[in-house]
Design a protein around this nucleic acid. Structure first.
Lengths: 186, 186
DNA sequence: CTTGAATGAGATGTTAAAGTATCATACATT
DNA sequence: AATGTATGATACTTTAACATCTCATTCAAG
C-alpha cells in the first residue's frame, strides 16, 4: 500500500510541522505512526518531503481557489469566495508560515508569488467594479487580505474561532473594518 | 568596548535572522562584522543570543507601546497610537515571525501572550467607547489587528510600502475596511 | 504453504553547525 | 613603554540530525 503510506507520512508531516516547524524526520515519522526508514523509502530526503508537502499545499489552494472563482459572476464575488475557500483550506498550508527552508526553493517561492499576483488581479478587477477602495495602494490591499487570511488560519488552528466563523469574519472585516464608524473623530 | 560589541552582534543578528530565520552563528557574526568566537564570548550559546534578541525586541515593543498609550486621552486613541508605534518598531521584532525555536521558550511565549492580552484590554476599552464593533468576537478583533500589523511590517520590510504609509494604512483599514461600502450587495 | 513486497527496528556512516581552546594582535589606560 | 583586555583567526571537539544499510517480520497473492 505505497500510496496510503505516503499519504500517512504527508499528513503526519503536516501535523508535526504545524506543531514545530523544525520537526525532525524522527518526529514526523512518529507523528505518522511509521518507521523512520519508511520516510526515506518514499521521499529522497527531508527537503524532498517538504517540497512534496509544499507542492501539495499549493495544489490544494489552487484547487479550492479555482472552484470558488468558477461559480462567481462578478470579480468581487470571486474575491469573496476565494478568500473564504483559502481560509477553509488553511490546515493544509499553515505549516508553510514558519517553514524557513522552503522560502529559498524557487519553485515554492514562485508559486507563492503567483498566488499573490492572482490575488492582485482579483483585487484590481473588484476595484473596477467599485467595491475595493481606490484610495488604498493595491499592494496594501493584497498584503492586508493575505494578513487577515493568515490571522484567520492561526485563530482556527489555535481553537479561538470556528472555521466557518473565521471564514465569514475575514470578508466582513475586509468589507466593513472593525469599527462602528460612529467615532471617526478619534 | 563590551557594550558596543554586543550591540553590533544583536543588530547583525536581527539583520541575518530577518533574511533567513535559520541563519548560522557564522552568518550572524559575518553580518555583524565580528569574529565568530566573539559571539560566544558575549552570549553563552546561539539559543542564548536568540533569547537576548527576543527580550530586546519585547522590551522595545513594550517601550514604544507605553510611550504611545501614555499620551492618549481615550482608549481608542491609545489603540490607534499603540498600533502605529508597534508597526513603526517592526524591524526590531520581525525576525520573531519565523523563529520557530523561540516559541518553545516559556519566557518569550509568555511575553507574546501578555502583549496580546494587553491588546485585548485596549480593544475592550475602545469597544466601551463605542468605536470597536460589538458584533465581532473580541478574539477576532485582536487576531486581525495582529495580522494587519504583521502584514504591514512585512510590506515595509519588502519595500512595498513606506513605513509611515504602512502605519497609517493599518489604522485606516481597521477603521474603514478595504471596500467602498458602495456595493454591499455583493 | 510459499513467495515477494513493504515495513519496523536499530546499527552505522556522514555532515553541518555548535561550541571550545589557543595564540597573536590591536588598542586603551596608566 | 608596560600592562591588561577585547578581538580575530583558526584549529579542534562534540553533537544532533540526516541518510544508508541490514535483517527479521508481517501480510497479501497465488
Amino acid at each position: 500500500m505505497a500510496l496510503a503510506t505516503e499519504e500517512r507520512i504527508l499528513e503526519g508531516a503536516v501535523r508535526a510541522l504545524s506543531a514545530s516547524p523544525n520537526a525532525t524526520v524522527d518526529q514526523i515519522a512518529a507523528e505518522a505512526r511509521v518507521g523512520r526508514a519508511t520516510v526515506f523509502r518514499h521521499f529522497e530526503s527531508r527537503a524532498g518531503l517538504l517540497r512534496a508537502l509544499a507542492r501539495r499545499a499549493i495544489a490544494q489552494t489552487d484547487r479550492v481557489t479555482r472552484q470558488a472563482t468558477a461559480r462567481a459572476c462578478t470579480a468581487t464575488d470571486a474575491l469573496r469566495l476565494a478568500t473564504k475557500a483559502v481560509v477553509g483550506a488553511g490546515e493544509s498550508y499553515r505549516f508553510l508560515e514558519a517553514a524557513a527552508e522552503l522560502r529559498d526553493e524557487p519553485e515554492i517561492a514562485g508559486a507563492y508569488e503567483r498566488q499573490m499576483s492572482e490575488l492582485a488581479d482579483l483585487v484590481r478587477a473588484s476595484r473596477r467594479e467599485g467595491f475595493i477602495r481606490p484610495d488604498v495602494p493595491l499592494a496594501w490591499v493584497v498584503a492586508s487580505i493575505d494578513g487577515l487570511i493568515w490571522a484567520a488560519c492561526r485563530a482556527v488552528g489555535e481553537g479561538e474561532l470556528g472555521r466557518v466563523q473565521a471564514q465569514d469574519l475575514v470578508w466582513d472585516t475586509i468589507t466593513s473594518g472593525l469599527s462602528t464608524g460612529a467615532a471617526k473623530e478619534f
